[in-house]
Amino acid sequence: MEAAAAEQGGEKIPPGKPMSMEQHMLDKGAQMLQSLKPVKQMNQHICTFALYSHDMTRQIETHHFVTRLNQDFLQCAVYDSGDSTARLIGVEYIVSDKIFESLPPDEQKLWHSHAYEIKSGLLVNPRVPEMVVRPELENLAKTYGKFWCTWQTDRGDKLPMGPPVLMMSPQPVNLGMVNPDLIVKRDDKYNISSEALKNARIEIPEPEWINPQADYWKQHGVGFFIDVEATEMKKIVPFP
């Protein structure tokens, strides 16, 4: 019984009791009475792949639910699937090349480019025709993203553990390439062909220049990793 409760739709969920009828009713009532404005601004579902900055042998399929705040800035809630039981595993911020160029060099090192994801057919909008999303793909090809993973579900964590981890975008070089088995599994799920999408996107213009501070690992062979350390607190009043 517990094993069945831990699996819903093929997705593992955190340990805990099943939701009660009272909780379901409370949630439905709140949904009717509250605006949930930020959530309702999510107007795109993007599926792609990401690699851990400190260990690119670890690669995951990611589902980004996107809110566009303006033409130059997007924010994404990132889940491990597109199902109702999906786990929220992180957040990605996406900026235009104009904003990216305004960032300090040390900040730019934390960001990745999106051109290859677009051109290679790895990034898709599930169940949306290519001709509909083509203008958006052309815009995204010129953007940069910063993606923090807060729940490493790929290593079996049933709860969010440890500090956030910086994620990188797939690239056409050795360790930066995505495991073909992951691509086949994703393509079969959505009845698409990444290879066919790649051929169809040949005419999408590539950025005239991708800042080398982005995808920093490609030039320098190093990633970034956050650790936790104790530090002196700034106190408003002295502790007893």
Rank of each mutant, 00 (worst) to 15 (best):
L166S: 05
G16C: 10
Q108V: 02
R127G: 12
L36C: 10
L36K: 02
M56W: 05
S35E: 15
M161W: 10
H114D: 14
V222I: 03
W111E: 10
R134P: 01
R58S: 10
A4T: 06
K109C: 06
V91G: 14
M25V: 11
A50K: 01
C149V: 03
T150C: 10
Q8R: 02
N43A: 10
Y116L: 02
Q171A: 12
Y216R: 00
D55L: 04
S96V: 01
A230D: 15
E11Y: 07
G156M: 08
W111H: 07
D55F: 09
I118K: 03
P18C: 05
P105V: 02
T67M: 08
V173F: 14
F239Q: 09
Q152V: 04
R87Q: 14
L182R: 02
I118Y: 05
P163H: 08
H220Q: 06
S113T: 07
R201N: 04
N139K: 06
C76A: 11
P18N: 07
V128Y: 02
E11F: 06
V91L: 13
L175H: 12
I60R: 09
M19D: 12
P207E: 07
W151D: 14
G176V: 03
M168E: 15
K98N: 06
V78E: 14
K98Y: 12
K109H: 08
Q213E: 09
D181Y: 13
K28N: 13
N70Q: 05
Y52R: 00
T57A: 15
F73I: 07
M177D: 15
K198T: 00
M167Y: 03
H64I: 04
T153S: 09
F147E: 07
L33E: 14
A30W: 13
Y116P: 01
M42C: 08
H112R: 01
I46G: 04
E2I: 04
M42H: 03
K235N: 13
G221E: 06
P126H: 03
M161D: 13
L26H: 12
L123D: 05
F100S: 11
Q23C: 05
M131D: 15
G223K: 00
Y52Q: 02
R201E: 03
V178N: 03
H54A: 10
Q41T: 09
D188H: 06
N174G: 12
F239G: 04
V222K: 00
M42T: 07
N43C: 08
E101S: 11
A230N: 13
S81T: 12
Y144W: 10
I118Q: 03
S120A: 13
Q71F: 13
K17S: 13
M233D: 15
I192D: 09
R201C: 05
D27N: 11
P170N: 11
L88K: 01
L88N: 11
Q75H: 04
G156E: 15
N191V: 04
L36T: 11
V66R: 06
Y116A: 04
I99M: 14
P104L: 03
L166P: 00
V222G: 00
G9R: 01
D83E: 14
F100D: 14
L103E: 14
W217P: 00
G16D: 13
A230F: 10
V39L: 12
V91C: 12
Q171L: 06
A115I: 05
G29S: 11
M21P: 07
I118E: 07
D106W: 03
S96D: 12
E101G: 06
P104A: 07
E2M: 08
M25T: 08
V78S: 07
G9T: 07
D187M: 01
L159R: 04
K185S: 09
N43S: 11
G162L: 03
A196P: 01
